[in-house]
Design a protein around this nucleic acid. Structure first.
Length: 221
DNA sequence: GCGACAG
DNA sequence: ATCTTGTCGC
């Protein structure tokens, strides 16, 4: 077993080991400029019994015109363990990506990126694995402390590691009077740009459109 | 030991 | 994530 292309059918201990080994490789990824991004994709996975349904929805950027969508159903074996989500959803997400004709320029995931115990959440893992810029966009917090962000769309506060006080992400208001989103760097993008992209993807709802549409698609029949 | 804990 | 009805507010 090598490392970036590691096996997915592994033990919990091995999964943690892989995260610790791969996490440092996130910083060697050269950051991209937003002007290079022409397409963005949103990912989501729904569950039913022992099966998962992964959905990918691709939009042009920054125009936000729907370009493509994919759905894949497959058995899910790895359990849900906070901090190890990528080992549960990674396989089915990669299977769905294989059906895309073109890999989008930027990938947005429903979960954390850098705002993770080992700085290697779902978005970071997928971004590194696919060598593509990625962003973590979660509906709830996994780790970290923060103050409530302002009430206007676009307002945000920082998410800090509770022990080191390092900035690990941002808490972004994407809709007035609605709970904020937890945005963090995935791969090859800085936090400032990640926040900008998420805001540009907001089309009147709490969730950025790529994720919102993927949610709807994964939840459908 | 107790509480927290992405989806 | 998923199980679940009505209900308050913009």
């Amino acid at each position: 077993m090598n490392f970036i292309n590691h096996n997915w059918n592994i033990s919990i201990e091995k999964a943690i080991e892989i995260q610790q080994y791969l996490s440092p490789q996130i910083e060697i990824g050269e950051k991209i400029n937003l002007c290079e991004i022409k397409t963005v994709a949103g990912f989501d996975v729904s569950y039913k019994n022992n099966y998962g349904k992964a959905a990918i929805v691709v939009f042009s950027f920054p125009e936000m015109v729907l370009l493509d969508q994919i759905v894949v159903v497959s058995p899910i074996i790895f359990p849900y363990i906070p901090g190890l989500l990528s080992f549960r959803e990674g396989p089915i997400i990669l299977a769905a990506i294989e059906k895309l004709k073109n890999l989008p320029d930027l990938l947005i995931f429903d979960g954390q990126g850098y705002a993770h115990p080992r700085r290697f959440g779902l978005a970071s893992h997928m971004g590194l694995y696919l060598n593509r810029p990625s962003i973590g966009c979660a509906k709830t917090r996994l780790i970290g402390n923060y103050n409530e962000p302002g009430s206007n769309v676009g307002d945000y506060s920082y998410l800090y590691d509770s022990e080191t006080l390092e900035i690990i992400g941002a808490v972004v208001r994407t809709k007035q009077n609605v709970k904020p989103l937890f945005v963090s760097v995935g791969y090859k993008i800085d936090l400032s740009d990640a926040i900008k992209v998420i805001i540009k993807c907001i089309q009147g709802y709490r969730l950025p459109e790529p994720i919102r549409q993927a949610d709807i698609l994964a939840a459908s029949g």
